[in-house]
Design a binder for these strands. Structure first.
Lengths: 109, 109
DNA sequence: TCGGCTACTTAGCGTTACTATGTACTAGTA
DNA sequence: TACTAGTACATAGTAACGCTAAGTAGCCGA
């Protein structure tokens, strides 16, 4: 992956995953494929699992184990109220940054 | 500073500074105050200087020392052609990320 | 002379995404 | 049976970057 993208994903990837979880619970492997489908083709599998461990430890998601037809049991992640709050803050932070950058790009030098 | 913002600035702060340098050269202290004026009120001074060292070592800027009326000599940074190329790539990366996130926010779940 | 502004530097830390590798289960196939 | 591929999760070690904290150094006005 481009080094720029790697750095830029720091801080945003968590928000992206939380956003993916709004409305519909999902498990790790599924999230990975969702990300790839949305254009993030080069996000490493290990990265996603590590992130999921993190947001679970922070208490942003509820976890449930469900058997799979194929392979080992899935860990299904559901966004809880703390996670929704975190996601709200994420969008605020993102909006701030996004506005400044748009200003910079359109010659607000 | 908010932890979210800290993480989100990784990878973008460099682009922001490069963008600030387009058109008008500037020195470290000046860049810090420029950033604060643009709303990034909590970016640490040491962070800016460290970043400037980095982009100088990457060869993205030309540097010139100029005496100051007050205090130690200034190191004036000018964006060079390599820096412009890097800035272009930055905007591409940013656009990509920005579009995906906007899609996610507006319910493109 | 002493605080405050200008201006730059550096050491050490925490967080995050990456690479690389491994485990484990199922189904298809030669 | 042995293999291959797909599903599904886990983890040890690394690099990059922004932060904190502390310092050096010059100038000025009270």
């Amino acid at each position: 992956m481009g080094k720029q993208m790697t750095e830029m994903l720091k801080g945003t990837l968590e928000g992206i995953v939380l956003a993916l979880l709004t409305g519909s619970p999902a498990y790790g492997y599924e999230i990975t494929t969702l990300l790839r489908a949305q254009g993030f083709t080069e996000i490493a599998e290990g990265t996603v699992y590590a992130l999921l461990v993190r947001i679970e430890q922070k208490g942003l998601v509820d976890v449930e184990k469900r058997p799979s037809e194929k392979g080992p049991p899935r860990k299904v992640y559901t966004l809880n109220s703390l996670g929704e709050k975190e996601l709200d803050e994420f969008w605020n932070t993102w909006s701030f940054l996004s506005e400044r950058l748009e200003q910079l790009r359109t010659g607000g030098n």
